[in-house]
């Protein structure tokens, strides 16, 4: 069986301007797919095409086997879309807002009431359900918008910059909610600028710049492939329990250590290792055997931010 979402060579042109070109990726239910790129890279355009709000010039995308071009009505019932911007409607309470969208998805009677109650509970908005939408904080509005996207229990959630403008607490809460939703089998496509968060959240991702996918796949796989291609040496961060002035000479004498950078005098160092990963434990053994009290010995990996900076060139269209 194929993936739940398959994007196949999507191209969108606005006159002579190419917003996205041959964008392809796929992912399945229960996974969170990160869509990363600078402003104007084509993330929102791709998401809007997937949500049937825009059309592709060429190519197609399939949601659960249904084409977004040929069968947009079937696709709409399967997706929940959260745009990057939406205004709050006036004179409407949280409950009225959710009730309206439940009705718009043609949920009737008891089913509608239960859906609204479920979303209010899930979003932890029971106490403020009679509050007007315009009076909500940014975090609560984002939460409500996510709730609205969930009201018809879609299989796929398409979230365009859901964490933008949120404070740290609201971001953490949103992240937890998304994790729960993924555990419940939802496929989530999320774009964000806050890459550290995406790296903790996403199973796989695509990096897009100037409308083209530069790299996509599992986050670890991208990291590994980049490190294979990367000519720079692995870096180890080292901390001792107590400062030791002799260690600097000792470190420089270890065969695989290419370069030593002293961060805190006699206590914290960064070591550039010239060799493969198998030789790294031998450095640790050497230090312990020599009687140094090692508190921290960690290979510094590339996080999503480093990946993003390595892959993209910072060009905008």
């Amino acid at each position: 069986m194929g993936d739940l979402i398959v994007v196949d060579n999507l191209t969108r042109m606005f006159g002579s301007f190419t917003a996205i070109k041959d964008v392809s990726f796929s992912f399945d239910s229960g996974s969170i797919f990160g869509f990363i790129g600078p402003n104007g890279a084509g993330k929102t355009t791709t998401m809007r095409i997937l949500s049937t709000l825009d059309i592709a010039t060429t190519g197609d995308a399939f949601i659960n086997g249904y084409s977004v071009i040929d069968e947009p009505d079937k696709v709409r019932s399967m997706i929940g879309f959260m745009p990057d911007y939406y205004g709050a409607p006036k004179n409407m309470t949280i409950k009225d807002y959710l009730d309206f969208f439940a009705r718009a998805y043609l949920l009737k009677g008891e089913k509608r009431r239960k859906s609204v109650e479920y979303v209010i509970d899930f979003m932890d908005m029971k106490k403020i359900q009679d509050k007007h939408v315009v009076t909500l904080s940014k975090g609560m509005k984002q939460r409500l918008c996510l709730g609205r996207a969930l009201i018809h229990d879609p299989k796929i959630l398409i979230l365009d910059e859901p964490a933008a403008g949120l404070d740290p607490r609201a971001r953490i809460e949103l992240r937890e909610l998304l994790k729960i939703l993924a555990e419940r089998g939802k496929a989530i496509l999320i774009s964000s600028h806050i890459l550290t968060e995406l790296s903790e959240l996403c199973d796989s991702c695509a990096i897009i710049e100037q409308g083209k996918i530069l790299s996509h796949g599992n986050v670890n796989e991208i990291q590994e492939s980049l490190q294979l291609n990367n000519k720079s040496l692995p870096v180890i961060s080292l901390s001792l329990l107590e400062p030791n002035e002799d260690i600097l000479i000792h470190l420089n004498e270890i065969p695989f250590v290419e370069q030593v950078e002293e961060i805190t005098k006699g206590k914290k160092f960064k070591l550039k290792v010239n060799g493969n990963k198998n030789q790294i434990p031998q450095i640790l053994k050497n230090l312990i055997d020599s009687g140094y009290l090692v508190m921290e010995f960690k290979l510094e990996g590339q996080n999503l931010e480093d990946l993003f900076l390595n892959i993209t060139k910072g060009e905008v269209q």
């Binding site: 949500s51 709409r76 205004g87 718009a104």
Partner: peptide
């Protein structure tokens, strides 16, 4: 007009209406 400006209309457009 307000529904169109604040994207409520757009969100309604992808419901079953």
């Amino acid at each position: 007009h307000e529904d169109r400006l604040n994207s409520t209309y757009e969100l309604m457009g992808i419901t079953k209406l």
